[in-house]
Design a protein around this nucleic acid. Structure first.
Lengths: 225, 225
DNA sequence: GTATTGTAAATTGGATCCAATATCCACTAG
DNA sequence: CTAGTGGATATTGGATCCAATTTACAATAC
């Protein structure tokens, strides 16, 4: 073996075109750029990325497995939409898992991570551009969770968030959720800094379930119109 | 519109070849017929099902998204294997979610469903063929959960089970888990019939975490050899 | 005018073909 | 004999081509 040192990037794990397309579509759905029920034409996507339809189809298959799109044989893929009941259930699920995760995290959380979380909370509170709220909100929470040593839990939370992020956005922007979120983030952060795991878990649960009630109420009112 | 009534099977939602292959591979992995680390050759699978590699690749993409196989660019797909830590985490996760689900289920469970669960518990206890234990075990628990009105939770549980079913099998068959499982099932069933949601949840959690300890101990001993 | 049939265009899903990469093994140099 | 090179083989990933199905719409019948 030669002794020459060079920073070798592992070509074998470079993202394939299919990966790139998957990520782009996922992002677009999560960010709400592709609306509920919108149909995704393989040809169109393929020409956007200058590839054939093959990698597009692979990306769509993976998105369907995640529940972000729904496919009907020979009819194509549409962005999945969730009913009110389904949205409510997702929030319940998040409250359960995120509550558990933050409890474990707070018991072992480092000062460095706490500082990061604090920075995100402040950035969130100070951000004037409503388009960036959802992202900062997610970063804040994720930072508080990430030391929990439970990668599978984190992955599941992330996938659940992907499915409802579009709706959450509405909750923050359209229901004045931002003001309450600021206050509740402060509380969660304080509990975490005090290493009070049960309090952090309880506040996180309440935070999620509160957002759920607010969003569901908003969507119900919306529906009646 | 004509009045003729006939039981119309919706052709549009018939399983595609890709669906069939996905299910078959999933089943084979879950049942342990395909071992950890075994590589899956696209050509081989394609000829087994008499199709080209295209639907096989779609199935593999979906399996990878589920975490049942791992792909490396240009090297192909292998059946994912879980470390001891990962297995332990999956059990923790199951205890959390299944505990929650059975609590909600027991509050609304029908007598009919209880009777079904009882039948599965008895079938499980009486089954001499160890190859069928895992399936009956899963049916018993699923039956107790299914009235909970939370389809997303059930789906997540199902996917989590898929990832560890191979290992669970070993726990039941090789560690005398079957005897304890019989007794614990009885307890869970009794709590459910008494509509004692908290007790059913606590017993379910204990059941899962007990199986986890037993399995992890077994695998650790195995590893040292 | 409305409902129904038939046909053309659009779209998906699969097969085949081709290029890029990895793996294996024989060969060579030292 | 060993390390290393080069090329044959196997395998994957993507492009192109083709068949099957859906959709839109024009033509026809009533």
């Amino acid at each position: 073996m030669m002794a020459l040192k060079l920073k070798a990037t592992n070509l074998g794990s470079m993202p394939s075109p299919a990966d790139v397309i998957f990520e782009a579509l996922r992002e677009a759905i999560v960010e709400g750029e592709l609306k509920d029920g919108e149909t995704l034409r393989q040809d169109h996507i393929a020409s956007l990325f200058n590839v054939s339809r093959i990698p597009v189809r692979e990306a769509l298959a993976r998105l369907e497995e995640q529940g972000l799109v729904t496919t009907q044989r020979h009819k194509g893929a549409v962005v999945s939409s969730l009913s009110l009941e389904e949205i409510a259930e997702m929030f319940e699920f998040r409250a359960l898992v995120e509550g558990e995760v933050i409890r474990h995290a707070v018991n072992v959380i480092s000062d460095k991570t706490l500082a990061e979380a604090k920075a995100f909370a402040q950035a969130f509170a100070a951000e004037p551009d409503s388009g960036k709220w959802a992202g900062l909100n997610r970063l804040f929470h994720y930072t508080l969770y990430k030391d929990c040593g439970r990668p599978y839990h984190l992955q599941i939370i992330s996938k659940a968030l992907d499915k409802i992020a579009r709706y959450l956005r509405a909750q923050l922007v359209l229901t004045h959720g931002i003001a309450r979120a600021r206050a509740e983030h402060e509380g969660i952060l304080r509990a975490a800094m005090a290493r009070d795991a049960d309090e952090a878990a309880a506040l996180t649960r309440a935070h999620i379930l509160g957002a759920s009630r607010s969003l569901i109420g908003f969507l119900q009112a919306q529906e009646k119109k």
